[in-house]
Design a protein around this nucleic acid. Structure first.
Lengths: 200, 200
DNA sequence: GGTGTGCTTGACACTGTGTCAATTGACACG
DNA sequence: CGTGTCAATTGACACAGTGTCAAGCACACC
C-alpha cells in the first residue's frame, strides 16, 4: 500500500488500464495485470488490497491522466442554461468512451463488491450533480419545460446519460459516437427546454 | 436433462425463482437452489447443464407462469399508433418488475457466459421488435415526429425502456412504479408523437 | 557491515462451478 | 421373484481465481 505515488504502483495501474481497454473491460485477472506490469502477482497485493481497490484506483488514475474532472466542471462556465445543458452533455458524452472499459469492470464488480459499488455510486452521484446544475441553470433562465420539476428533469437527464444507455446505442446498436451525442442533445432539448419547436 | 416437464425440474425452477426474488437476483448459488428444492446439489446438474442454462430456463418458466408473452403481444391489438405505443409501454413497464430479479442474475452472467448473453440478447431483440411495431404503427398514422426516422425512434424507445433504466429510476432513485410508467409514457409521447403540445 | 524496504517464490486456504463413479431405492415389467 | 432402469444420493475431485502467509533475496542508504 505504498502511499499514492510509487514507480510500481503506477506501472500496475497502467497495466490494468491497458488490459481493460484491450479486453473491453472483462475478465482481466490480477495475474494478467501483474504479468503486463512485469511483476509478480503477489506484488500487486502489496499495492492494492483487493481487485476492487485496484479498479477504483485505476479510474482515479485515468481521471487524473485525462483531466476529466476539469472538462466536466468547465461545462459549468457556459452562461445560458441551454448552453450549459449542451456543454454538460457534450463533456459527459466525451467522457464515457474514455472510462468505459474500466467502468464496465467496476459495474461487473458492483453486484458482489461493496467497495466497487460505493465507488461507482459516488461517481454517479457526482454526475447527477452535473445534471442538477444544468437543470437548475435552465430553470433560472425560465427555460425549463413547464411539465418538468427540477428533480424530475434531473433524474431523467441522469438516466438518459447513463453509461448503460451509451453502451446500448453505440455498442449494441452500433451508433457512431457523433450520432449518439447529437441525438442525446436534441432529445434533452425536446424534453427539458421550454418552447422548443421541434427540429430547431 | 429430463425433457421439459418433470416434478423435480419445476421444483428446481421454483426454488431458483423464489431465491432470486428474495435476494434481488444476486449471489444465488447452485447449492442454495438445491437446498430449497430439497435435493442434492448434484441432482440439479441432472436437469441443467450449467447455472446459466438454469437461469435461462427460469426466465422461460416465469414467462409461462405470468403469461408475459400474451400481454406484450396484446398491446399490438390497439388500433391507433399512439394507443399502441402507450399500450406497449404499459405492458413492458408491468413486465419489468416481474422478471427483474432473474433478469439481474442473467445480466450479471452476461459478461462471462455466452449462453446467458445470447439468451438475454434474444430477449432484448424481441423487445425491440415490439418497439419497432409501435413506431411503425405511429408512422403509418402519420403521427411519427418529423425529426425521427423509424429506426432512430425504435432504438431510442428501446433504450428508454431498458431494464437498467427502470432500475435506475425505481431502485436507485426510488420512484414508485406508477410514476415510472407515467413519466415514460409522456416522455415517449413528447419524443415520438408528432405535434403534441406539451402537457396534453 | 548492518538494516530496512520492495519484490520474489512457493505454498496454501477458500469459494463456487462442474464432473465422475459407485451406490441406493423405487417402480415396472416379464 | 428377479431384473432392469431411472432418478437421486454420497463423496471425491479438478479447476479457476482471489487473497494470505512465510521465507528469502537484492539493492540502497547510512
Amino acid at each position: 500500500m505504498s502511499s499514492e505515488t510509487s514507480e510500481t504502483r503506477t506501472k500496475i495501474l497502467e497495466a490494468a488500464l491497458s488490459l481493460l481497454e484491450a479486453h473491453r473491460g472483462v475478465a482481466v485477472r490480477m495475474g494478467d495485470i501483474a504479468k503486463v506490469a512485469g511483476i509478480s502477482r503477489q506484488a500487486v497485493y502489496l499495492h492494492f488490497k483487493t481487485r476492487a481497490a485496484l479498479l477504483v484506483a485505476a479510474t482515479h488514475h485515468l481521471d487524473a491522466l485525462k483531466g476529466s474532472e476539469e472538462r466536466l466542471v468547465a461545462s459549468r462556465a457556459a452562461t445560458s442554461g441551454v448552453e450549459r445543458l449542451e456543454a454538460f452533455i457534450a463533456a459527459w458524452a466525451g467522457y464515457i468512451p474514455e472510462i468505459y472499459p474500466v467502468a464496465r469492470a467496476l459495474l461487473a464488480l458492483r453486484d458482489t463488491d461493496e467497495a466497487a459499488a460505493s465507488a461507482w455510486d459516488r461517481r454517479m452521484a457526482d454526475m447527477r450533480e452535473g445534471c442538477a446544475a444544468a437543470v437548475q441553470a435552465l430553470a433560472r433562465d425560465g427555460q425549463l419545460a413547464p411539465d418538468q420539476t427540477q428533480d424530475q428533469a434531473t433524474d431523467l437527464l441522469w438516466m438518459l446519460l447513463s453509461v448503460r444507455n451509451w453502451e446500448l446505442l453505440t455498442i449494441a446498436r452500433g451508433w457512431p459516437q457523433a450520432r449518439y451525442l447529437a441525438c442525446l442533445q436534441t432529445t434533452a432539448r425536446q424534453l427539458f427546454v421550454a418552447s422548443v419547436t421541434r427540429g430547431s
